[in-house]
Computed example of a mutant assay.
Amino acid sequence: MIEVVAEKRVGEARVRVRYAETDQMGVVYHSNYLIWFEVGRVELIRSMGLDYKRMEVEEGCGIAVVEVHVRYRAPARYDDELVVETRLVAARGAVIKFGYRVLRIGDGALLCEGETVHVVVGKDMKKRGLPPKYAERFAAYLGSRASHEVDGLQSDR
């Protein structure tokens, strides 16, 4: 049995915009937000007491991105300090969904929000179930929401 530690419902990862991440207009190029989503996702998983790298190496599986939705609200610029808020939205079988918000720390402005949908795959890139340790921790994180429909994905305990 896994000991469940009370987690924050939203993980936070801080990033500072590097000059190379901006475009000719001086704003962050849109694809960089997807990289920051990944930073947030890995840190959220780590905050749950899990290790994505260990899942790949020891469990022989990964979580492939199969769908991304992003809404850009305001530009980030060089040297802005940002916080990427990440939450686990749903986890059922081989499907996992995360939600994100990127905010500028200086003024709290919401710059971007989005979601990613992932499918758990083995090294052969075929769909497989989430390893039990991860599935149990994700279900505990989702708490009472685990048996409810959340944003179009049904999550089961």
Rank of each mutant, 00 (worst) to 15 (best):
G114D: 14
K123F: 04
R18F: 14
M1V: 10
G129R: 13
M125K: 12
H69N: 15
S147G: 15
V68D: 12
V84I: 12
R14W: 07
H69C: 11
A140W: 07
E43N: 06
P131G: 05
A94Y: 07
G106P: 01
I96A: 04
D80V: 00
E81T: 11
E67A: 15
V84H: 02
R145S: 13
R18P: 09
E38W: 06
G143L: 06
G49W: 01
V68F: 14
I45A: 01
S47Q: 09
D124M: 01
A6S: 01
E7H: 03
Y78N: 02
I63Y: 05
E38D: 11
V39P: 00
G26A: 07
V28I: 09
P132K: 05
K133W: 00
L103R: 14
E21C: 12
M55Y: 08
M125G: 00
A109F: 03
G99Y: 07
G11I: 09
K127S: 15
K8I: 01
D151Y: 11
S144P: 05
G106E: 12
E81L: 13
D80R: 00
R9E: 07
I35Y: 07
G108E: 09
V150K: 06
G40K: 03
V15M: 06
E136M: 12
M125P: 00
D124A: 02
V102G: 05
K127A: 15
V65K: 11
R157D: 14
A109D: 05
V120D: 03
E81R: 06
R92P: 00
D51K: 00
V68P: 13
L110N: 08
V42I: 15
L50S: 00
G99E: 06
R157V: 15
E21K: 14
Y100I: 07
Q154L: 14
